[in-house]
Design a protein around this nucleic acid. Structure first.
Length: 853
RNA sequence: GCGGGCGUGGUGGAAUGGUAGACACACCAGACUUAAAAUCUGUUGGGGCGUAGCCCCGUGGGGGUUCGAGUCCCCCCGCCCGCACCA
């Protein structure tokens, strides 16, 4: 007997793969290509179980496709610009670049033992000038193509540190370091014109059939196409130049329920009043407190201030409505002004209640309903309702019908027009930070804001910066900032904003097709390798990253960096769940919670105890692995204890990949035991005699073909947990088999092939031990023999009124009427019928029989 | 607040609208062992009865569609993700 020793096996096969360069992707005309990509990691310094899961999922696909005869591209890189590097610089005094490159090296060393089939020759890091110089070149192309512009936009401003804060750095409306109340402040910033592509990005979603429906729906809602009415209220007593207030509404059918007009604190009228009125100025200042997130705005207390301005209702000019400045109205959406209809909008209802404004219903559930409302009446737009204050269309109609009728009526009366609007805003890419891709433009007193010359790229980040003062060190670096104007040559100043890291990750998939080229992409390579056939990552990227990447691919096509065929860069998308773990908690003397690492705890059934001291530990149900709760499991310790194959097998085995998986020590041990079991089977077969004819050869071969079929289907549909369940079953069958040596040998080699995408090292070893030719990684995927899959008889459950009452075995090809006769002759059916006749008998061939009594 | 998702035994989960609980963990029992570990075998959703068997209940709660619902539709509850400067 030999022992399963993963550390020895895994190192050996990884060396063999590397020596043969079998994962190096080379363009080839004689094989179909397959590009599998996992979302590249941020180099935090430590890989975690989420990475292990993500890259294992991708690796299963990559290895499976390789075995299926595809020319596979499976690259890896680093999303290596970002805030965390600057935080490290501030906390530890390390340069962001030093910190980042060290982390990349560390993480690469941690990933290598997992045995992923990656082509490391294509490795890229977005923080390296080799990468970002091409991003700068494309930025210049995109300025020329009219895809980029500048405008004012709000940022989180920390008035104590005098710096811009990321949303993440705002905690409960306060700066994370200074603790000061954050304000919203306007800055001139760079924008991509993504909103020009709203309709295109929306309609193209229909063709992304291999994306999860939920992601497409989220993107659809994010883009937010709406049809509504844009019209103007005429003002009674507004400042000069503001005799109209333009509003946009998606519910023009509720116009007769209008009881106020609300404008954004950033609306031109509000800005005008702010100058002359202390009260307005104070209120607007109050509105600007807090962060910029939509969440903060929508969940915060709704505040309003009556401006004293009145407007006339367009249908009844004698009716005047008050104009409020309201803190929940965004200047970015619509016209920055709304009319409030408290009867049919909960937010407006609360506002009206608070400021004692009338609540006027326009439609009701029925003609008899009272129009004294306790809360806003907001039925589905598809529901028919009774319009008690309608002005267009039928009295009884759906919201959708009423909206269309209202738009048509208003247009005919010259009150505004129907317009289509999108919720999607332009993509602000400016960041007032050091550790990002410099925006390659120059501010010249004479020429204005002009792009850098391409031959002067890259605009490299200066190395000599410090982080002892809050704010962007580029602002203070006059030597770096001072540069000749690319137009007139006079001394000018560089832009100090850097790009949003979403820009970096919006085109890396394209760069992987020609990672060392001296242009951003190479058309021949992009034509060959694009699109990504399978993209895999977390659902948290469902909207922003994926939408930006879709836009960027279009922008790259327009500027000649990608072919037309690649404007939707990801053919198929898979969104995986998180890796979770139970949390172990005790309390200290002051009853504050203390969290313990899994390795500090002994779990015995439902109870857990500290290894040190033996105190009982409270077990809190599984949650996302997080440093603050100490419920993290280090992949490296798992690999050193059980090997990479066990870690890979376990993260695949216990949950469907799209759902969260709970890491349990016992589950990992079970996976390890299975590896050993397969190893032992292989050992046993090796020791068998060739002479023995064996028993049950046919059964084992049938099971082998059935398993081959089931596992193949499961892998094709991302049912890796189901594939593993089948492999467990087949392993048990093989273990008990008394078949001949040659048949068992065939079975164990097939088992190894089916396991190879998941546990590649063990599979290689079995393959080699049993005399397989070459590397299993390059062996063609086994094909199930259809003839071995068909059973002669099937067992049909018999239901009476939908409840299972028995079963019958029938030939697989028995006609329906004969199955029906047999079912009616079943004793349980006879008993329940009790001499009566069935109303109906439903026979689903090969599935079920249901007798309706 | 808005958008999206999820909810099935003690646990993770399986189930093209067609036998709910595959597979695994845990527990329990047995074999082997001086003993333990390891390994192997078996039982295990809950309840009931006249216990080779049969019946009832059961997929977060309530309602609906269907011959048939964990699966589809509506309402409610709970949890998770995203909300444009975390990546």
């Amino acid at each position: 007997m030999t022992r399963y020793t993963p550390s020895e096996i895994e190192a050996r096969w990884q060396a063999a793969w590397e020596k043969d360069e079998i994962f190096k992707a080379v363009r080839s005309a004689d094989k179909p290509k397959y590009y599998v990509l996992e979302m590249f990691p941020y180099p935090s310094g430590r890989i975690h179980m989420g990475h292990v899961r993500n890259y294992t999922l991708g690796d299963v696909i990559a290895r499976y496709k390789l075995a299926k005869g595809f020319n596979v591209l499976h690259p890896m890189g680093w999303d290596s610009f970002g805030l965390a590097a600057e935080n490290a610089a501030m906390q530890k005094g390390i340069h962001p670049g030093t910190w980042t490159y060290q982390n990349i090296e560390d993480m690469k060393n941690q990933m290598k033992p997992l045995g992923f089939s990656l082509d490391w020759s294509r490795e890229i890091a977005t923080c390296h000038p080799d990468y970002y110089q091409h991003q700068q070149a494309m930025f210049i192309d995109m300025i020329e193509a009219g895809l980029i512009y500048r405008k004012n936009a709000v940022v989180n401003w920390d008035p104590v540190d005098m710096t811009v804060l990321a949303n993440e750095q705002v905690e409960q409306g306060r700066g994370w370091r200074s603790g000061a109340l954050v304000e919203r402040r306007e800055l001139t910033q760079w924008f991509f014109k993504i909103s020009d592509y709203s309709d295109e990005l929306l309609s193209a979603l229909d063709n992304l059939e291999n994306w999860p429906a939920k992601v497409r729906l989220m993107q659809e809602n994010w883009i937010g196409k709406s049809r509504g009415l844009q019209f103007a209220f005429s003002t009674v007593n507004a400042p000069d130049g503001h005799d109209r207030i333009e509003v946009y509404t998606t519910r023009p059918d509720t116009l007769l329920g209008a009881s106020f007009v609300g404008i954004s604190p950033d609306h031109p009228i509000a800005k005008l009043l702010e100058r002359d009125s202390e009260e307005v100025a104070a209120f607007v200042a109050e509105c600007r407190k807090g962060g910029t997130t939509e969440e903060a705005i929508e969940t915060g207390e709704k505040l309003g201030l009556d401006t004293g301005i009145r407007v006339r209702h367009p249908f009844d000019t004698s009716q005047e409505l008050p104009v409020y400045i309201a803190n929940f109205i965004l200047m970015e959406y619509g016209t920055g002004a709304i009319f409030g209809c408290p009867a049919h909008d909960q937010r407006d209802f609360e506002f009206a209640t608070k400021y004692d404004l009338p609540i006027i219903s326009t439609y009701l559930p029925s003609e008899e309903s009272s129009d004294e409302l306790e809360e806003a009446y907001v039925p589905q737009k598809t529901e028919k309702v009774f319009y008690n204050r309608g002005f267009a269309g039928e009295q009884w109609q759906t919201g959708l019908e009423a909206i269309n009728a209202a738009i048509a009526f208003c247009e005919s009366q010259g009150v505004g027009q129907g317009v289509t609007k999108f919720r999607l805003r332009d993509w602000g890419l400016s960041r007032q930070r050091y550790w990002g891709c410099p925006i390659p433009v120059v501010h010249c007193d004479d020429c204005g804001v002009v792009p850098e010359k391409k031959e002067n790229l890259p605009v490299k980040l200066p190395e000599d910066v410090t982080f002892d003062i809050p704010g962007n060190p580029l602002d203070r670096h006059m030597e770096w900032r001072t540069t000749p104007c690319p137009f007139c040559g006079k001394s000018a100043l560089r832009e100090t904003d850097t790009m949003d890291t979403f820009v970096d990750s919006s085109w890396y998939y394209a760069r992987f097709t020609a990672p060392h080229a001296d242009t951003p992409t190479v058309m021949d390579d992009a034509n060959y390798w694009m699109n990504v056939d399978q993209y895999i990552g977390g659902v948290e990227h469902a909207i922003l990253h994926l939408l930006y990447a879709r836009f960027f691919a279009r922008a790259m096509q327009i500027t000649g960096h990608l072919p037309e065929s690649a404007i939707e860069p990801f053919d198929a998308l898979f969104t995986q769940g998180m890796v979770t773990h139970a949390i172990y908690k005790t309390e200290d003397a002051n009853q504050r919670p203390v969290y313990h690492y899994p390795e500090e705890v002994d779990v015995k059934g439902d109870n857990a105890f500290l290894k040190e001291g033996g105190a009982q530990v409270e077990i809190i149900p599984s949650a996302k692995m997080s440093k603050s709760k100490n419920n993290v499991v280090d992949p490296l310790s798992i690999i050193s204890a059980f090997g990479a194959d066990t870690a890979r097998w376990f993260v695949l085995s216990d949950s469907p990949p799209e759902r969260d998986v709970e890491w349990t020590a016992s589950g990992a041990e079970a996976a390890y035991k299975h590896m050993s079991r397969v190893w032992n089977i292989c050992d046993r077969i090796g020791a068998m005699s060739d002479a023995d004819a064996g028993e049950g050869n046919e059964e084992l071969l049938r099971a082998m073909h059935k398993t081959t079929h089931d596992v193949t289907m499961a892998i094709e549909s991302f049912g890796f947990n189901a594939a593993i369940a089948k492999l467990y079953g087949f392993t048990a069958t093989l273990q008990k088999s008394k078949a001949s040596k040659s048949v068992q040998r065939e079975a164990v080699m097939t088992l190894a092939q089916l396991m190879a995408p998941m546990t590649p090292h063990l599979a290689e070893d079995i393959w080699a031990n049993q005399g397989g030719e070459g590397l299993i990684a390059k062996a063609p995927w086994p094909v199930a023999d259809e003839a071995m899959l068909k059973d002669d008889t099937v067992t049909l459950p018999i239901q009476v009124n939908g409840k299972r009452r028995g079963e019958i075995d029938v030939p697989a090809d028995m006609p329906k009427d004969e199955v029906e006769k047999l079912a009616l002759a079943h004793e349980a059916v006879i008993r329940i019928l009790d001499g009566g006749t069935p109303k109906k008998v439903i026979v689903v061939p090969g599935r079920i029989v249901n007798v309706v009594v």
